[in-house]
C-alpha cells in the first residue's frame, strides 16, 4: 500500500447566501498517495474547486467548512489555527489557479511575488530570495529569467504567467501541489506545455498533485487516481486505468461517451440531457437521478452510499447494491452494466 499524504474525509462546505445555505461540497472523501497525482473531475458547479479551496481554507468570506476532516500526514488541518495554516500554505501545500491573467498582482514584479513565499517561509532576505526566484523561473522554463524577474505581469503572456504561478507555488518545495484547472484558460499548445511541465517537475521533486479539471483528456494524461464529482459529491473513485476501461457510474459513462475519442470505435457522441441541479433545489435521492437513463424510484428517493468493490474503487450508484430494484442488465448511455444482487 502506498503512503497517504493527504486524506480528505466526509468534507462538507457550505456558502451562506441571502437565499440560504448552498451546500457546495456535500460529503467528499478521497486520499492522495505520496508522489502521485489525483484528478478531481467534474462540470463547473460540481464543487471540485470549492473542495480544493476548502483544503487550504481559502474560501470566500461567506464559505465555511461545516463538517469533515482533512488529514495532512495524519493531522487534521481543519483544526489548525490560522497561523498554523499560514505555515502550510505556499510552503507544504501550494496552489495554482485557473486564471493566470488575473491571479498575479498587477502592481508587483514577478520577482517580488515569487520572493514573498521565500522570505515568508524560508527566512531568506530579499537578495537571496530574488536570486532563488531567478533559479525558479529557470526551472519552469522561462527564457532569460534575469530579465523576466524584474518585469510586471502585464509584460508576460498567459502561458508565461502560469509558469510564474508554478514557480511561485514550487518556491518552497511543497509536498502537495493543488492545481485548479491550471490550463483551462490557455491555448491548446500552451496547455500541453504546462501539463508536461507539471508532470516533469512532479517527477523531479517527488510531490503529490491534486489536479482539478473538467477535462477527462487531461486526466488520462496526468493522473494516477481519479475522483469524479457531481453536484457536490464524489460519485466514482478509482485508478485511472479502471476508470477509462470500465467506468461504472452512469455519470462517468455519460461523460466518457460525450467525449470524442479517436482511438475507440465510437459510433456517435451521446449527450447527457438535462442540467446540473440547482444548489438550492437538490434532488432528495441520487443527485444524478433526474438525468440518468436508468434511474428507478429508489434512485429518486434515496441517496446511494459509496460502494467499495474491495479493490479501492468506489462508486455511488444503486446498481451495485443488493437493493437494486431495476432489471439485471441495464443500458446506460448505450453501454450495458450488470446489476448486482
Amino acid at each position: 500500500m502506498e503512503e497517504t499524504i493527504l486524506d480528505v474525509r466526509g468534507l462538507r462546505t457550505s456558502f451562506f447566501t441571502d437565499e440560504g445555505e448552498v451546500k457546495a461540497v456535500d460529503g467528499v472523501s478521497f486520499s492522495v498517495p505520496k508522489g502521485k497525482t489525483i484528478g478531481i473531475v467534474g462540470e463547473s458547479g460540481s464543487g471540485k474547486s470549492i473542495t480544493s479551496l476548502s483544503i487550504l481554507r481559502l474560501l470566500a468570506e461567506n464559505g465555511k467548512v461545516v463538517d469533515g476532516e482533512v488529514l495532512f500526514k495524519g493531522e487534521n488541518i481543519l483544526d489548525y489555527s490560522e497561523k498554523q495554516m499560514r505555515g502550510l500554505r505556499g510552503n507544504k501545500i501550494s496552489m495554482i489557479f485557473q486564471e493566470p491573467m488575473t491571479s498575479l498582482n498587477p502592481v508587483f514584479t514577478v520577482g517580488q511575488q515569487i520572493s514573498e513565499s521565500l522570505t515568508t517561509h524560508q527566512g531568506m532576505n530579499k537578495k537571496q530570495a530574488m536570486a532563488k526566484s531567478v533559479d525558479l523561473l529557470k526551472l519552469v522554463g522561462i527564457p532569460s529569467p534575469e530579465k523576466r524577474v524584474t518585469q510586471y505581469p502585464y509584460e508576460l503572456s498567459g502561458g508565461m504567467r502560469q509558469r510564474v504561478m508554478i514557480a511561485m507555488a514550487l518556491a518552497c518545495n511543497p509536498e502537495i501541489l493543488v492545481a485548479d484547472e491550471p490550463t483551462t484558460a490557455l491555448d491548446v499548445t500552451i496547455q500541453a506545455q504546462i501539463l508536461g511541465l507539471i508532470k516533469d517537475l512532479q517527477n523531479r521533486l517527488g510531490m503529490s498533485v491534486i489536479f482539478i479539471t473538467h477535462d477527462l483528456g487531461v486526466v488520462a494524461e496526468t493522473c494516477d487516481y481519479v475522483a469524479v464529482m457531481y453536484a457536490g459529491q464524489v460519485v466514482e473513485y478509482s485508478d485511472v486505468r479502471t476508470l477509462f476501461r470500465r467506468p461504472r457510474h452512469p455519470y462517468t459513462i455519460g461523460l466518457l461517451k460525450s467525449l470524442p475519442r479517436p482511438d475507440a470505435d465510437q459510433e456517435k457522441l451521446v449527450p447527457i440531457h438535462g442540467m446540473v441541479p440547482s444548489p438550492f433545489k437538490m434532488p432528495t435521492g441520487c443527485r444524478f437521478a433526474p438525468r440518468c437513463p436508468a434511474a428507478t424510484d429508489l434512485c429518486r428517493e434515496k441517496l446511494p452510499d459509496l460502494f467499495d468493490d474491495g479493490e479501492g474503487n468506489q462508486v455511488r450508484c444503486w446498481i451495485y447494491d443488493e437493493e437494486w430494484p431495476g432489471p439485471k442488465e441495464v443500458d446506460v448511455f448505450g453501454e450495458e452494466r450488470i446489476a448486482k444482487g
Binding site: 437565499e19 448552498v22 457546495a24 463547473s44 474547486s49 470566500a60 444548489p279 438550492f280
Partner: peptide, 12 residues
C-alpha cells in the same frame, strides 16, 4: 470562485 457564481446563477 467561478464555480460559486456559476452555482448561484444557475437557479436564475
Amino acid at each position: 470562485m467561478s464555480e460559486q457564481t456559476a452555482g448561484a446563477s444557475k437557479s436564475e
